[in-house]
C-alpha cells in the first residue's frame, strides 16, 4: 500500500503550473505560502495582493482571491482591503524592485501604522521581469544591465537592507530575512513566514519576511551557481536573521 507523503496544497490551483525560469526562487516561496494558508485553514478567508514584477501572476497559481496593485502600492491596496475586511487574511507578495525600491515608502508607512497584513518580499537583488536592471538591493560590484561594470557605490550608493529597516518600525510585529538555498534553509524560511502569518492572525501587527532568492537567468549563472552565490556572497551583505519578533514575547 502506498502512503501519500507529498500532495498539492489546496491553496494552489489544481491546473496551475509555475512559469518561472529554471532555478528561480519564486516557485518555492509560493508553495510555502500555499502550504501555510492550508495549515492555518485560511484558504476561504484569504485575499492575496499581487505586485509588479515576476511576482505579478498570483491569480495563475493561487486558488485564492487576488487583487492586483500598481508598482510599489500593494501594501496600500492591502491596507484598504484589510481595513474593510478585518476578519480576512491579507498578504502582499512583492519583489525587491516593488517593495524595497519604488514602494519602500509604502512599506515603511504600512509597518509604522502596524497594519495587520503580511508582506513576503522576494529579494533577488535586481529587476527580474524587465531583464535584470539594478534595484535598491543590488550589491556593490554586482553586474546588472544598468551597471555593466558593476554597481559603484560612489555613483549609485549602497544596497538597501529592507528587513532591518522594517524591524525598526514600532508597528512591525515580525521582521526576518531568510534564504531558500538548502532544505534546512527552506524549513527555516517556512518557520519565518509562519511567524509572520501568526502576527496577523493574532492581530499583533505588520509581518515582513524578506526571502533571498535566485535569479539565474539575469545573474547569468546556473541554478547551482546561483544558490552558492546567495550563500557565499549575498548573505554577506544581506545577512539572514530574525530582526524583530514580538510573537516570541507573546508566547513567553
Amino acid at each position: 500500500m502506498e502512503t501519500l507523503v507529498y500532495k498539492r496544497p489546496e491553496s494552489l490551483l489544481k491546473d496551475g503550473h509555475f512559469t518561472f525560469c529554471p532555478g528561480c526562487g519564486h516557485g518555492v516561496v509560493l508553495r510555502i505560502i500555499a502550504e501555510l494558508i492550508d495549515e492555518f485553514n485560511l484558504q476561504k478567508d484569504t485575499i492575496a495582493i499581487s505586485s509588479v514584477g515576476c511576482s505579478i501572476f498570483l491569480e495563475k497559481f493561487f486558488n485564492l482571491d487576488v487583487a492586483g496593485a500598481s508598482h510599489g502600492r500593494s501594501p496600500c491596496v492591502a491596507t484598504g482591503v484589510k481595513r474593510c475586511k478585518p476578519d480576512k487574511f491579507v498578504f502582499t507578495y512583492q519583489g525587491d524592485g516593488d517593495a524595497a525600491t519604488i514602494g519602500f515608502n509604502e512599506t515603511i508607512h504600512t509597518a509604522c501604522r502596524g497594519e495587520h497584513i503580511t508582506t513576503i518580499m522576494i529579494n533577488n537583488t535586481n529587476f527580474g521581469m524587465t531583464v535584470g536592471q539594478a534595484s535598491a538591493t543590488t550589491l556593490v560590484g554586482q553586474v546588472t544591465t544598468t551597471t555593466p561594470a558593476g554597481r559603484k557605490a560612489e555613483l549609485t550608493g549602497y544596497p538597501l537592507h529592507a528587513a532591518e529597516i522594517v524591524s525598526k518600525c514600532d508597528g512591525t510585529a515580525y521582521a526576518a530575512r531568510v534564504a531558500i538555498t538548502s532544505t534546512k534553509n527552506i524549513i527555516q524560511a517556512k518557520k519565518a513566514i509562519k511567524k509572520a502569518f501568526e502576527a496577523q492572525v493574532k492581530g499583533l501587527g505588520y509581518g515582513f519576511v524578506e526571502v533571498l532568492a535566485a535569479c539565474p537567468t539575469n545573474w547569468h549563472m546556473s541554478p547551482v551557481e546561483s544558490v552558492e552565490h546567495i550563500d557565499k556572497v549575498i548573505e554577506q551583505v544581506h545577512p539572514l536573521g530574525v530582526f524583530k519578533d514580538i510573537t516570541a514575547q507573546e508566547n513567553e
Partner: peptide, 22 residues
C-alpha cells in the same frame, strides 16, 4: 468607520482601490 491619513496621494488612492475591490 475607517480614516487614514496616508503617506501620500499615491498611497491614499491605492488604499481606495483596496477598499473598492471588496
Amino acid at each position: 468607520r475607517v480614516f487614514i491619513t496616508a503617506e501620500s496621494e499615491l498611497a491614499s488612492v491605492n488604499m481606495l482601490i483596496g477598499a473598492g475591490t471588496t
